[in-house]
Design a protein around this nucleic acid. Structure first.
Lengths: 363, 363
DNA sequence: CATAGGGATATGAACGTTCAAATCGCGGTT
DNA sequence: AACCGCGATTTGAACGTTCATATCCCTATG
């Protein structure tokens, strides 16, 4: 009668059925090599027959580990244009399973005390460690967690402390540099940059890549940069002078797909066509990039997730920068169609069209 | 030395410090009314001083409840244009906390056996119930869960069994109907519909609302409907004949923002302007709707999440249809700017511009 | 032939909490 | 004065697992 309970088998049920002790069943589950093959087979059979799975609470209580990694959902960025949170979360969830862990999403309601939520979770032994996202300058979290010897791994560099290597990040500078080289090789002659106001670590990094490449290839001026927040109108506004300055045959590299969309709109308002008239490259390769045929730098979410979970699980090494592959689409082709046969990448290669989606369902 | 452990206080530590028994501390936490005010104050003080939080594993073990609700992440829809998964997840996460629960996201890797993942979770007592999303015709999950008396609540009707009311849904028909009325009142004279192929419950529902309204107001023909999957190119293709049929001064209601974007593109290719020449209304009010100044029907995610968690917690009642408020933007204004002072809604009213975002950070 | 060694399996205890039942103290009732 | 009732608090047991240790039994070794 108790909801969801039913006939759940415990380790003792299995032990009785297989005529062994509970510890032997435990061993079959946790260290099979310790159990004689014949016994192991018998126990395994009973486990399957009874549908036994160790009770996570009991296991967690005894082992003093939660079997869970916490992930703070950043309520500021969620639902924003070009957010890749959902993809990242799916990757984390998928890849936690083989490591015998689950993902515990949480929000930090108290902006004044951002660590309170972490504190709560630790006090209740709800998570064994944390995945940090959106690291920034003066991020209080790494130091706080280090202090308490709580394991963590970040998507994004620990900007304040180069000694901490518990992170995996995307090499933004390499990305924007690749974008410039790509655009130059496509024949665009003047390449500007649309980024965020200085002071954001990620943004500064991406700008620097553009600057380096533009200087190296002599396809622009370090002054050809504009700034905007993520909002579309602001981005469109900020893009306007850049459009003027690079003119037809020029191009704009953007720090995000959202900014690129702003620029895209700015072009349209002037009757200019992305790609044909002015090249455009975004960053993140979010859903809109694909939708608007916008060339973008693809966040290697899968590899990032894998790397981070590896760090949390104590495998692998940190401090790694992954190069975001460039996904070439129409917005960086002067002929209007996807230019090079395959994407220009420094790492993995993605098919030019990148229409590898699993056939879409509704909603 | 053990990572993350440190000096975590247990209930006995608190009991000793406050000079009471463990059960009294437990009572202070779980049923404060049973404890004399003076004692309660003393215990509460010690709880705060020691930073005590009940160990979730121990609690869960004893109570035989996980303190968790499972949410399957649909890997087919995630990352798609206009996905609202991340917003929904944030709402669920936020609103689970006051109900003393957490959200357990999981994926079902085995497409052949979609219930395997649910089975696993139940067997391990990892969740007390499930939040279902993307319900459809012949969804195996409700029956399976009912069979096992596992609590669940769905975002989306249980289409196959009207007797089951463990759901909250958005009234798609009412939404598209409101869209038609809105467009008609804005002066659009011929209103078509771009939806998904028949057979998807959500899609059929949304189409029906359009059909009803168009007939009632005499602003269209039931034949003026086209079908497309979520992919942009296909949508643009499917929209083309509709554009022809309604012509300038006509409008198109779409079953999703992604489809609307397809239509939007189709308009642009013909040199037609959304709003000024042809009205356009999407569905979901996802990030792109806001970005492209696209009128859309807003999924009342907050209310849905609240309703669903209420059902899981045993409060409230199910079988509720929430009316999606229409968020009017430029794409449904013949003058090109947002028409009515406020959105036309049947429930909550949203500011016309709907720029109520919390100042955006990067990434 | 006794015994050491060691692989396979079993037993006792503990993780931290809550439930059920027992105990305590005290004012009110007969 | 003895007892009842009741609120406040305590005690014993149990949730299901794993760790540490103990036991068993068989083979190899001197």
């Amino acid at each position: 009668m108790r909801a969801g309970r039913g006939d759940r088998a415990t380790i003792v049920d299995v032990a009785r059925a297989a005529e062994v002790s509970r510890q032997t069943v435990s061993n079959v589950v946790n260290s099979p090599h310790r159990v004689a093959p014949a016994t192991r087979a018998r126990v395994t059979a009973e486990i399957h027959r009874l549908g036994f799975r160790p009770n996570q609470a009991a296991r967690s209580l005894k082992k003093e580990r939660a079997g869970t990694w916490g992930v703070q959902l950043d309520t500021r960025t969620v639902g924003q244009l070009g957010s890749i949170l959902d993809r990242f979360l799916v990757e984390l969830t998928t890849r936690s399973a083989p490591r015998d862990h689950h993902i515990l999403p949480f929000v930090a309601p108290d902006v004044a005390d951002p660590m309170a939520a972490y504190q709560e979770i630790l006090a209740g032994q709800l998570a064994d460690g944390f995945v940090l996202t959106d690291t920034r300058y003066e991020d209080p979290r790494p130091a706080w967690l280090l202090d308490r010897q709580v394991p963590f791994a970040a998507f994004g560099r620990i900007w304040d402390d180069p000694a901490v290597t518990a992170w995996v990040d995307v090499d933004g500078a390499a990305g924007t540099e690749a974008a410039v080289r790509h655009l130059a090789s496509e024949g665009y002659e003047r390449i500007a940059f649309l980024g965020w106001p200085a002071g954001s670590a990620v943004g500064d990094d991406r700008r620097e890549g553009w600057r380096r490449a533009v200087v190296a290839l002599d396809v622009g001026d370090a002054e050809w940069a504009a700034e905007s927040e993520q909002q579309l109108e602001l981005a469109a506004l900020a893009a306007a002078p850049l459009v003027e300055v690079v003119g037809s045959g020029g191009a704009i590299v953007c720090a995000s797909d959202a900014l690129a969309l702003g620029a895209w709109r700015s072009l349209h308002e002037r009757g200019l066509r992305p790609g044909l008239d002015i090249g455009l490259v975004g960053f993140d390769d979010s859903d809109i990039a694909e939708a608007l045929d916008l060339t973008s730098l693809r966040q290697p979410i899968t590899e990032v997730a894998e790397g981070i979970l590896g760090l949390l699980a104590g495998e692998g090494w940190g401090g790694r920068l992954l190069t975001p592959p460039l996904v070439a689409r129409g917005s960086s082709s002067r002929s209007g169609r996807v230019p090079t046969p395959a994407a220009i990448t420094a790492g993995a290669t993605y098919p030019a069209g990148d229409r590898t989606t699993t056939d879409g369902d509704k909603r």
